[in-house]
């Protein structure tokens, strides 16, 4: 092999970069972490079924935001006819009381930083 010093250095740099997640996870020791959510005891009261909420909660909240702030509509009629106040703090977080143990769990895991909390305040956090 010619210029072996330079080539081997290059190969080592390449391997370090490409295996970055492996040694990063070993160093941090949280490789087996899976987020566990704190669900409310009383299920079935949610504004929609869990599969929909899981996938589209951001769309729903975005629509609520637009309707409340821009159109002044405050009442949400669910698919089964029940009505709710369109409010993150008062409706959603009435059951899902802990932002820390519910919202943040998945958001932190996947590095999602929703700007809900730029304005909204987690009621529990406020008490502390």
């Amino acid at each position: 092999m010619y210029d072996s010093g330079k080539v081997i250095t290059g190969i080592i740099v390449f391997l370090i970069i490409i295996t970055f997640p492996v040694w990063y996870n070993v160093a941090r020791g949280k490789a087996n972490y899976v987020p566990e959510l704190e669900y409310p005891v009383d299920t079935g009261r949610c504004v929609a079924d869990s599969a929909y909420i899981r996938a589209y909660h951001m769309d729903l909240l975005n629509t609520w935001r637009d309707q409340v702030v821009r159109e002044g509509i405050r009442v949400y009629r669910a698919a089964d006819g029940r009505t709710f106040e369109m409010s993150l703090s008062n409706t959603c977080m009435n059951c899902h009381q802990s932002k820390e143990n519910f919202c943040d769990k998945c958001h932190d895991y996947l590095s999602v930083s929703p700007y809900c909390w730029d304005c909204h305040i987690d009621p529990k956090e406020l008490k502390r």
């Binding site: 970055f20 997640p21 990063y24 996870n25 941090r28 949280k30 932190d108 996947l110 590095s111 930083s113």
Partner: peptide, 18 residues
């Protein structure tokens, strides 16, 4: 995409994403 391979997600990946 490192956010899917690293726990906790490194701050610089989040900064880049933001």
């Amino acid at each position: 995409h490192f956010k899917f391979f690293a726990e906790p997600v490194p701050a610089w990946v989040m900064a880049l994403q933001n």
